[in-house]
Amino acid sequence: MSSIAKVVRTLHEVAEPQLELTPAQIQALRCIAGGDRHAAAAAKLGISESALKARLVSARERLMARTTSEAIQKAKEIKLL
């Protein structure tokens, strides 16, 4: 019974999105949420488009979102944006 409880706890930990993002991930999401396209957001942040996209991908993964729009919505819900 205790081994089942341990497995269930582990699955819950893995299935729950992280509630923290790095400042770089928040900046990237904030730019896109503000209406910037990738090129404009990257220029605003002084990074390459590929770096911006990497930040967005990692933010989506942490928030367990399929799309950037979904990540923005989740970040707003947990008061990160």
Rank of each mutant, 00 (worst) to 15 (best):
A24F: 12
R9D: 11
G46L: 12
A41Q: 02
L21S: 01
I47L: 09
E77Y: 05
H38Y: 14
K79G: 04
P17T: 02
K76W: 13
G35R: 15
A15W: 11
I26A: 15
P23Q: 12
S50Y: 12
E16I: 10
T22G: 05
A54G: 10
E20P: 02
A39K: 10
Q18R: 08
A24I: 15
V57F: 15
S48D: 14
R66D: 10
L21G: 02
A71Q: 00
I4W: 13
I78C: 05
A71W: 01
T67W: 07
P23K: 08
A59L: 10
A5N: 11
S58T: 14
V57L: 15
A71F: 03
G46A: 09
T67R: 06
A65Y: 02
T22E: 07
Q73F: 06
E49V: 02
A28H: 02
L11W: 15
S3D: 10
K6T: 11
T10F: 11
D36K: 03
G35L: 12
R62T: 03
D36P: 02
I78L: 14
Q18H: 06
L81I: 05
K53Y: 06
S48F: 06
Q73L: 05
R9L: 11
S3Y: 11
C31W: 01
R60S: 13
A24K: 15
I4N: 15
K74V: 05
I47F: 08
K79H: 07
V14I: 06
P17C: 01
S2Q: 13
Q25I: 09
S69C: 13
L81Q: 03
E77K: 15
A24S: 08
R66V: 14
A33L: 04
L63N: 02
E13Y: 08
A71I: 01
Q73K: 15
A42M: 04
T67C: 11
I72T: 00
K79P: 06
L45C: 10
L56K: 04
A43Y: 06
A40L: 05
R55I: 06
V8G: 15
E13L: 07
A42V: 02
A40S: 07
E16S: 09
K74M: 08
A75I: 03
R37A: 08
L29S: 00
L21N: 00
E49I: 03
A59R: 01
L63T: 01
A41W: 03
K44E: 06
L21Y: 03
V14L: 13
K74R: 09
E49Q: 06
L56S: 00
L56E: 00
M1E: 15
A43L: 06
L21M: 04
I78E: 00
E70W: 11
A5H: 07
R55P: 03
I72R: 03
I47G: 01
T10Q: 08
E70T: 07
S3F: 12
G34A: 01
S3N: 10
L52P: 00
S3C: 11
T68L: 04
R55K: 11
T67Q: 14
L45E: 05
T22R: 11
A59D: 04
G46R: 12
A71V: 00
A43Q: 13
L56T: 01
E70F: 05
A40E: 04
I26Q: 11
K79S: 12
M64T: 14
K44G: 05
A41D: 01
P23V: 12
L52N: 00
E61N: 06
E13R: 09
A75R: 03
L80M: 07
K79W: 09
G34P: 15
A28K: 02
C31K: 00
